[in-house]
Structures are given as structure tokens and as C-alpha cells.
Design a protein around this nucleic acid. Structure first.
Lengths: 323, 323
DNA sequence: CTGACGATGTAGCGTCACTGCATGGACGCG
DNA sequence: CGCGTCCATGCAGTGACGCTACATCGTCAG
């Protein structure tokens, strides 16, 4: 019963297939298949079952995969126990963020962590669909993810550290009649063209809610003219007068192309959170980087609090184990 | 960071040396040495230090060894999680007991477990010094150990399951003046020759206490004539009139060679307990055998309760995790 | 039916851990 | 003080195990 084989099995579960798991583990599909086969032989029971041309974990497989995380946690804790006696943490941490979150947080994070000797932070940006964020934690230590305001959460096996709640404001062109307003009511937005994100991506649901509200007032569904995932492209369209949109306040508050006006009476916002797989959360370096990240986020949220009156709801704190 | 290497390190700690650990792990000393060397290279710090011609774990080594148990527990729990979905536990369990405990418990245990299909129990008897019992848990799943009545305990890393408290009675020859008595006072024993066990073995301390009491009354230290570890040899000597001794009630109550008389006013007894290493305690089969063992012990203690009035103190219950 | 994808066996190969042996230091004994 | 013993640890050789590459089979889409 090798920890390596358990990891392979768990990855097959999280990635949803042998080939996908092999990609993450930097192996060939054959190797992964042999690992789980060996595990099945040792235990004398089936851990995977074929479904279509792919595979799925059986009940026993799921149970074993869940337990596998505990093994990795214990291993990581062992490393930490030995190295914890050393002075300061050392190592490299992989951080990933969705595009706008990366723009908002990564420069500051790199600036802060540059001051820590022996700590290397490697960044990447991955904009994926809502349900793909957790899968990224197999490859990346700290995944900065976002989700709309009252959405269910992320599921087990992963530690969630809330970073900030970023309000979504109505973005209009500087020449737009609403551009000078301090706040805007839903009723003001009847009969506007909208620039929205693609379905399945985090902010889509918020826009749908706002749209429903506006539609209820105006008697018609919101007119979504464009589907743009990149906020910068959306900002360019809005700035050129091709419609209005919802844009995150901290990231686009100072963008000259658009004016952001808070939306009154509607809870429009997204939660930005750091996702870390439980075993990786045991690494001392990861904890250190995570601490810097939360401090940075608190700083950003604090700067905004002085400028704009905002609901103070920062979400329930999902604390780290052994905080 | 291999779980196998961690086990090697931990065993070096518990067994107190590379060679001893190698014996337990069925390896050569060279292999064990290379395992810990690899661990040290990977972590970049010293885990062992030389002391005399042997080695000892450093602080970091101790920390890592302690964490290693958690890894093994997690691994074992993973096995159990997968196999727990199967109907009944299966496998072989190694049980060891000190000589008189083996005589008292092992036949009954084998009778009970014979009824369990797929469960094999392999027995052995190991009579070792007080502080060597825990070391046995590296090689044996369930170690039946004994210790005098108020002794400190066994230390960490091992699960303790109390089985029974066996009173120690004064053993005299059938022809001895005290043979017919219902109880015997300490004052009755002044000026007797004693048959004791070797120093460092479990019952030695009890005899020392009784001896001190007797000595205080008689004004002289107890005369220890013979040092006999095997209770059967001791019984033979006592039966032949070569002195008195302290013998466990359940094991020698029906022995024709001696008469056992309870000792009034002195807490003379030994605790019989099962020692299981934490990771092995996760195995379902081991739990099953342990359940049979405790039931058997309770039955034996119950039979005695009807015959002789005894203090009901059975010791604090050190419960198993996830009982 | 054909092409593509995904999982899984098989052959070949490289790597790694173990054994056997030799070395060096530490303790005990004559 | 030197000798033998014991213990830990290097080093060369070997065997086993896991990985890659390739081929095969089943499944789904067009």
C-alpha cells in the first residue's frame, strides 16, 4: 500500500479519468492505470468501474480516495514537524488566479513575498469554469478562485480561505447619463443593453439575478447583447457605448474607460477565496504565503471601506486546521 | 518522503538502534541505515546522532518519528475504509503474552476466534522486562503485558486496552501453617523465606512493597532466598516448602502444589493489559480479536468475583480511537 | 462505417533499494 | 595498552519494480 498509488487513485477521482490524472501527475496513462490495478490486486476489490469510455471510482474507491488525503496530510505534517524546528520556511509555492483576480492580487503578493528570503512564488493565471477550480488544486498550491455571492461552496478535500468580497458595480461609459450618479437603482437600468460573461462562469449568475430584477420592473428580460469573458474587453465595449455591464470594483474602479456606479438594493458581488488542498496546506511555506495573501486582501478591502460605504459582510471564515 | 523510510526511522527510535530495527523489519542494518540517510538527505538535516557505538534520534528525528505513526495510522485507516465495505474482517493477527498470562488467556482466545471465519490468530509467548513490552508492538499486533498496580503506564504511540486486574495472593505449601487461613495479615509473614522474581520484572515491585510492610512489622528486611521468573518453578519451590511467594490468583488458584491465601490490607495485584500500536489498532481484524480478548478477560474476572470478594477497581479505561 | 478518444495489457528498459562485504569508531576485557 | 567484539555506515553488485512506448479493445460521434 504505497502512498504514491493512493495519490494516483485520488487524482483519477478528482480529475475524472486516467488520462487527465496522468497529465496532472506527469505520467503516462498506462502508469496510472497500473498503479490503481496494483491497488485493486492488493486489496482484492474493484476500485474503478468503466462508464462509457472513461472510468469512475466505485464506492470503495471513493472511500479509499478520501482516506488518501489523510495520508498525504499526515506525510506533509511529518515534513513540517521535522522542518518546523528550523528557523524560517523555505521553498517554492505555485499560485494561480483567475484573470482579474490575478491583476488585483498577484503584483502585491509578489512584492510582499519578495521580502521573504528563500520563499519563491510562481504565478500563473487560469480562468476556468466554476466547477473546475477545485481540480486545479492538484497541480497548484494556492488557487485564487471566485464565486457569486450565495453559491454553495467548493466541496471537501480542500481548505477555503476567504480573501475578500468584491462588489460588482454597474459599469457605464463616461458619456452615459448615469455616469455622474452616486448610486444607481435597478429601475434606472430598464432598457439597457448588457455585456455579460459566458454561461457557467462565476459572474453569470449575479447578472442573471440583477437582470431578473430589472426585467421585473421593466416588464421584459434583460437584453444581453454580448458574451465577453475578459473584463478588459467588456470594459472596452462599455466604454465605447455598446452597453452596460457589471464589473468588479477594486479591479476596475480606476479604469479610465468606464465609470463604476454602485447598485443600490441588490446584493451584487463575488467572493474571492484561496483554495488549497488539505495536504499542501500543511506546508509551512504555503501557510506563510497564504498569510501574506490574506493580509494583502484585507488591505485592499480596507482601502475601499474608506472610499465607499459597503456592506461589511466578509463571509464565514473557513479556518485552516491547526491555525 | 516514503512511508517506508519513516517506518524505518521510527523503528530505530523504538528499538534503540539500527541493528535492532533491522531485525524487526526483516532487513539488514545497511538497508535501514540507507533509509534514514536518504531521509536526512531529502530534509537536509540530521535525524540521528551517534552516542557511543550506537545511535539516537535527534530532536528532529523524534518529531519525525512521532509524525510517522500518524502516517501509518492514516494508511491503515485507508485500508480499513476500503475493506470496511466488505462483510466481515479477514486476516491474521499476531498475539503475544507473558508466560502466565498466555496460560490464562490464550487457550480461551483461540477457542473464541476459531469460530470466526477467515480470522487467524498466531500466538507466541514473550516474557520480557517491564520496559521492553512496548518494543514488542513493532513485531506483534496484540501484546498482552502486565505491570504492578500503580505503575506509571506505557508511554505514547501505543493503545492500551485494560483486560483485568489479577490479585496477587500469598502462596504457601499445602502443609504450611497458613494454608488453611481465609486471609493472611502482613504480620503473619514475618520471618518467612521468599521466592521472588528477578529485578526489573513486573511483579518485583509488588513484592518489594509487601516486603517493606512486613519488614516494618518484623523489624527486618524480607529474606529473598530465590529469584525465579517462571511462576511454575516458583510454585514448585513453594510447594516443596522452600519459602512463600506471591502468585497470581486466576492462574494458580487451582494449582494443587500450592495454597493461595489473599493478603489483607495490602493492594497486591497486577494489571493485565493489551498493548497495540496505534496504526495496527486501525485494522478491523485486530479490533475484532481485541474485542474477543476483552470479553474473555471480563468473563474470567467475573467468575472470580463470585468466589472471592475482591476490590472492584478495574482501572481507568483507555479507550480505542474511533471506538 | 470510420475516425478519435480513453483505458488497459505487454515488452523493454532504467532506476532504486536491498544484500554482502569491508571499513572505522567505541566499548570491554585480559 | 592492545585485542576482540559490536555497531553503524560506506561501496559494488544484483534483483525487483515502475515507467515509457506501443498495440489492442471498447465506446461515442459524425
Amino acid at each position: 500500500m504505497d502512498a504514491r498509488a493512493l495519490t494516483a487513485l485520488r487524482t483519477v477521482g478528482t480529475q475524472g479519468g486516467v488520462t487527465a490524472a496522468a497529465r496532472v501527475l506527469h505520467l503516462t496513462p498506462s502508469a496510472v492505470s497500473q498503479q490503481v490495478a496494483g491497488l485493486e490486486r492488493e486489496l482484492g476489490l474493484e476500485l474503478t468501474e468503466r462508464v462509457g469510455r472513461g472510468v469512475r471510482l466505485t464506492a470503495a474507491g471513493e472511500a479509499l480516495a478520501a482516506a488518501a488525503v489523510d495520508v498525504e496530510v499526515a506525510l506533509e505534517r511529518a515534513r513540517a514537524a521535522a522542518q518546523g524546528l528550523r528557523a524560517s520556511p523555505t521553498g517554492t509555492v505555485r499560485v494561480s488566479a483567475f484573470a482579474s483576480g490575478a491583476q488585483l492580487l498577484l503584483p502585491g503578493l509578489l512584492a510582499r513575498t519578495a521580502a521573504l528570503p528563500g520563499v519563491r512564488v510562481e504565478c500563473s493565471d487560469d480562468d476556468v469554469a466554476q466547477d473546475a477550480f477545485v481540480g486545479l488544486t492538484d497541480l497548484i498550491d494556492v488557487v485564487i478562485a471566485h464565486r457569486p455571492d450565495g453559491s454553495p461552496g467548493w466541496g471537501g478535500g480542500v481548505v477555503v480561505r476567504p480573501l475578500l468580497r468584491e462588489p460588482l458595480d454597474v459599469a457605464v461609459a463616461p458619456t452615459h447619463p448615469l455616469a455622474g450618479r452616486r448610486v444607481v437603482e435597478a429601475s434606472d437600468l430598464v432598457d439597457e443593453d448588457w455585456v455579460a460573461v459566458r454561461e457557467g462562469f462565476p459572474v453569470a449568475r449575479v447578472l442573471a439575478e440583477v437582470g431578473a430584477l430589472v426585467g421585473a420592473l421593466g416588464g421584459t428580460a434583460p437584453r444581453v447583447r454580448h458574451r465577453i469573458n475578459d473584463f478588459h474587453v467588456a470594459a472596452a465595449l462599455v466604454g465605447a457605448g455598446h452597453g452596460v455591464s457589471l464589473l468588479p470594483r477594486y479591479t476596475f474602479g480606476a479604469d479610465p474607460r468606464v465609470r463604476l456606479v454602485p447598485l443600490a438594493g441588490v446584493r451584487a458581488g463575488r467572493r474571492v477565496e484561496a483554495l488549497v488542498r488539505r495536504d499542501k496546506a500543511e506546508r509551512v511555506v504555503v501557510r506563510r504565503v497564504l498569510a501574506e495573501l490574506t493580509a494583502l486582501a484585507a488591505q485592499i478591502a480596507g482601502e475601499d471601506a474608506g472610499a465607499v460605504a459597503d456592506d461589511a459582510d466578509q463571509g464565514v471564515s473557513t479556518s485552516l486546521p491547526r491555525a
